[in-house]
Amino acid sequence: MALHIMSNEPTIQVKNLAKVYKMDGVETVALTDVSFKINKGEFVAIMGPSGSGKSTLMHILGALDLPTAGTYLLDGQNVGKLSDDALAEIRNRKIGFVFQAFNLLPRTTALENVMLPMAYAGLPKNERQNSAQKFLEMVGLKDRMDHTSNQLSGGQQQRVAIARALSLNPSIILADEPTGNIASAQAEEIMDIFQKLNEEGHTIVMITHEPDIAEHAERIIHIRDGRLVEDALNHK
């Protein structure tokens, strides 16, 4: 935790990462020898065709899954060696997820959805309510706070999800195909929000297979057949 404040330490540091799935005795290699660093404040897109292993990488970065080999340091902490509950705490405090399918709780208002991670963090109710309102305002949903998820459009739901991801001020915002289920006009609005967040200093890691979405990032990592094939700055 103390390492967090050392400015020269990268936020994400993966080294020789590998992931092998075993199913019915058959081994499937999803990632092989992937290494990279992401510094605080970067906006990185991870690209690759389907089956390339980019989703596996995203699950490991999100502490949803553990690597078979290699190390993953998040804020200097080795995530590969933690218990289920410790991983839950990492996901809660350090990672803000934005999913392709939004993944809001059904029959639950936008405000309650944004409050949920803060509830798991143990914050008192009024504090949760105040910050949830603040973040919903920030993504432009001030007048939609009491709408349930099924009363919102795809773009609006994704903005709720972004507010939810921001609610505990995480080290990284991890977005998995954030515009995959959204009409293109609204997709631009979502990308504008990400860009604005990045300008405010948030670290954003975004998985996508769409080149024009990846264009919003300042650095693009290409994955193919479980290997890192290209890691280059994106000159806009």
């Binding site: 509950d85 839950a88 705490e89 809660n92 405090r93 997820f97 709780l105 991670p117 798991y120 939810r164």
Partner: peptide, 16 residues
């Protein structure tokens, strides 16, 4: 199942 997965992704522990 999906909802439970989401809750865990957002930081719910086993106990919760």
């Amino acid at each position: 199942t999906r909802e439970i997965g989401l809750r865990k992704a957002l930081g719910a522990k086993k106990k919760t």
